[in-house]
C-alpha cells in the first residue's frame, strides 16, 4: 500500500518545527524515524494532512554529558544509542533494551524519542525510562518544560506531550553506587513486540538490596512501576528466596490486555516470573 497524500514539511530548527506543527492544521503527525508511523500510514490506519519531518532538525540527535545525568536527544537513533559510550557507561540498561528493539534496519532509522512518544504499551523503552526515573524535556511555542517519567505516560499511545509540542530530549540520571540492571524480554519470535518485559535496576549494599526499581512493559495501557515489588525489596536480604517472594507481587494492581499473544492472567503470571529473573540478574545473584 501507498500512504494517502499529505503535506510534507522539513524544518531545520526546533522553532521551525513547532511553527510547522502549529501551521499544519487539524491533523499533524511528527515524523521521527518513521518506523511505526510509515507502516500505519501505508495501511491507511493513519492519514495525516501534514507530516513534519524532524530528520533535519539540528541538535536533536546525539548524547551529551550533563553532570549528574546524560541527555539523549529525541532524534538519536537506536543504533546511535547502541554505540554510544556515555550510555554504555551510565545507562547500560537503555542499550540492553534498545538491542532488543525490532531489527538492525529498523534500529538504523527508529529513534529513542520517537519510540517514547509513540508510547506503545508493548514498546521496550518506556518501561526502561520509567525504571531509570528519566525526565522528558518538552518544547512548545511558549518554552520548554520538564516532565518526570512517572507523569509522562498518560494512557494508551498517549503521553504528556500536548498538541503543538515536541519531545526534544530525555535526561537519564547517572546511577551512583553499586547498581545492577537487567531487561528481561519475553516474546514469541525475534521480531515480535514484548508480550511482557521487565526492566530492573537494583542497588546492593552490604549483602542487602538497598533499592530496587522495576518497570513493567505491556502490563497495561502504559508502562508501570511494580511498586509493591520495589517496597518488598527495599532493605531485603539479597537472596534468591527474598527476590522470589517480592517478585510474586509484580502483577498486583495491573490490568494488562488480552490479545492474540496472551490473555491477561497469563501476562500477570509472566510478570512475576520475569520480575524474579530480572531482579535476580540485576542483583547479581
Amino acid at each position: 500500500m501507498i500512504p494517502a497524500p499529505f503535506q510534507y514539511v522539513r524544518p531545520t530548527t526546533v522553532e521551525e518545527a513547532l511553527q510547522a506543527i502549529a501551521d499544519g492544521g487539524e491533523d499533524v503527525k511528527v515524523l521521527a524515524g518513521g518506523q511505526s508511523l510509515i507502516p500505519v500510514m501505508r495501511l491507511r490506519l493513519a492519514a495525516p494532512e501534514t507530516v513534519v519531518d524532524l530528520g533535519r532538525v539540528a541538535g536533536l540527535r546525539g548524547v551529551r554529558d550533563d553532570g549528574d545525568a546524560i541527555v539523549i536527544g529525541a532524534m538519536t537513533t537506536h543504533s546511535d544509542v547502541l554505540s554510544d559510550p556515555l550510555i554504555a557507561e551510565h545507562a547500560p540498561l537503555v542499550a540492553e533494551a534498545t538491542a532488543t528493539v525490532a531489527d538492525r534496519q529498523v534500529r538504523h532509522r527508529g529513534t529513542f524519542g520517537g519510540a517514547l512518544v509513540h508510547a506503545d504499551p508493548a514498546g521496550d523503552l518506556p518501561a526502561v525510562a520509567l525504571a531509570l526515573d528519566a525526565e522528558f524535556v518538552i518544547a512548545g511555542q511558549s518554552g520548554r518544560r520538564t516532565v518526570p517519567a512517572a507523569e509522562f505516560f498518560v494512557d494508551y499511545l498517549t503521553t504528556a506531550v500536548e498538541e503543538g509540542e515536541l519531545l526534544v530530549e530525555v535526561r537519564v540520571p547517572k546511577l551512583t553506587g553499586s547498581w545492577g540492571m537487567r531487561y528481561e524480554k519475553f516474546n514469541r519470535v525475534a521480531q515480535a513486540w514484548s508480550i511482557v518485559a521487565v526492566a530492573a535496576v537494583v542497588r546492593r549494599e552490604n549483602g542487602r538490596i538497598a533499592e530496587a526499581r522495576v518497570g513493567l512493559t505491556n502490563m497495561g495501557p502504559t508502562p508501570l512501576r511494580a511498586r509493591q515489588v520495589e517496597e518488598a525489596l527495599a532493605g531485603a536480604e539479597a537472596t534468591p528466596e527474598a527476590v522470589a517472594a517480592a517478585a510474586q507481587r509484580a502483577a498486583e494492581g495491573t490490568e494488562p490486555s488480552s490479545d492474540l499473544n496472551a490473555q491477561a492472567d497469563y501476562r500477570q503470571h509472566l510478570a512475576t516470573v520475569l520480575t524474579r529473573r530480572a531482579v535476580t540478574a540485576a542483583a547479581g545473584l
Binding site: Y8, L31, G34, I38, P39, D53, G55, V106, H108, R109
Partner: peptide
C-alpha cells in the same frame, strides 16, 4: 534500511 519504511523525500 527498509526502503518501504523511508519516504523518498527523506
Amino acid at each position: 534500511v527498509k526502503s518501504c519504511t523511508v519516504l523518498a523525500v527523506q
